[in-house]
């Protein structure tokens, strides 16, 4: 058992998989230049030294090419693990992800498949609107892609290893403020936690119950799972007991765990840093309403980023993305219904 940050847990996962399977390789801009950072967030730093620069590719700043090379090499049996530096750049490679990676298996009638991993650092962190988005909901809308969002070091290792072994394109959303990498960021949360040395994977589609409770079910991912936990502590003092569920993977999504929780609580709150309109919470909320409306004692509440680009000024940024206070406020209202 080692104490690792998410950044180091991801690194360990990639390294273990590269040792296990010679077809796994990683690539990205500034992936591991000696003396450099190892991507933008240290995850791939040092991998070149162990695996050589033929398996750790420092690419040009060419996102279309980066994604396309993943698609092509994956179809030929390789298992590329690409790093995008900032998830916002996903839009530069949209064609390759959505029209190519996601559709190759289907269009070929099941003759080819695309086992690739695209790592997308996400979340607001005082960098302004183009280095801030939480885009995971976007990609949940595309059949053929899997979407995961690890928020603890333990999960980061297990989910990343599973992503690399998965035979389909997997987008991994990693929150910048959860990496816990050496370079300290304002508002960062320490995710240092125990990570077993053994070879474990975490199956996709299995949510984690972070905290048990009986009044409100809060489903929250990435940074918001931590905000929800903080809010739950405060609410506990007021006699409101919250169960916090981290879905961990959005495609596939573990509805069962949410339903089981609602059977106890009858109240559902969904919290994400992604914007409100058509965020993944809208899908979860409507699915519950369609299938289990009689479990609910009150309307579903969604707490999400306001529908604006992420502003720079820390006071504005904090206002736009859900805060602990907003969650507490909404929970109190929900209990009054």
């Amino acid at each position: 058992m080692a104490l690792l940050s998410i950044a180091d847990a991801l690194k360990l996962a990639i390294a273990e998989e590269m040792r296990r399977d010679p077809l796994v390789f990683c690539l990205g801009e500034d992936e591991d230049i000696p003396g450099g950072m190892g991507g933008a967030f240290t995850v791939t730093k040092g991998l070149g030294e162990e695996f050589g620069y033929e398996r750790v590719l420092n690419t040009p700043i060419s996102e279309i090419m980066l994604a396309g090379v993943c698609v092509g090499s994956a179809m030929m049996g390789m298992r590329p693990v690409a790093d995008l530096q900032y998830g916002d750049f996903l839009f530069c490679m949209m064609d390759q992800l959505v029209n190519q990676a996601a559709k190759m298996c289907y269009m070929s009638g099941g003759k080819v498949h695309v086992p690739m991993v695209m790592r997308a650092p996400c979340g607001a962190s005082n960098r302004g609107a183009q280095h801030a988005q939480s885009l995971e909901s976007f990609f949940t809308h595309i059949p053929g892609l899997k979407v995961i969002c690890p928020s603890t070091a333990y999960d980061a290792k297990g989910l990343m290893k599973q992503a690399i072994r998965d035979d389909n394109p997997v987008l991994v959303f990693e929150h910048k403020l959860l990496y816990g990498s050496k370079r300290k960021e304002k508002d960062a949360i320490s995710t240092i936690g125990e990570v077993p040395e053994d070879d474990y994977v975490i199956e996709f589609g299995k949510a984690a119950v972070r905290r048990e409770g009986k009044d409100i079910t809060i489903v929250a991912n990435l940074m918001m799972s931590y905000k929800a936990l903080e809010a739950s502590q405060l609410l506990e003092q007021e006699g409101i007991s919250c169960e916090v569920i981290d879905p961990r993977t959005l495609v596939p999504f573990d509805y069962d765990t949410v339903v089981a929780s609602l059977q106890k609580t009858g109240r559902l709150m969904i919290v994400h840093e992604d914007t409100y309109h058509c965020g993944w919470g809208a899908q979860l909320g409507s699915w519950i309403a369609e299938n289990h409306i009689f479990l609910l004692d009150a309307p579903i509440v969604r707490v999400a980023a306001y529908d604006v680009p992420i502003p720079f000024s820390p006071i504005l940024e904090n206002h736009v993305i859900p805060s602990k206070d907003r969650i507490v406020e909404e929970a109190r209202k929900l209990m009054r219904v």
Binding site: G68, V71, M76
Partner: peptide
């Protein structure tokens, strides 16, 4: 075009 580059990289 980039997919072909990826295929070639795999080779």
């Amino acid at each position: 075009l980039p997919i072909a580059a990826g295929v070639a990289l795999a080779f």
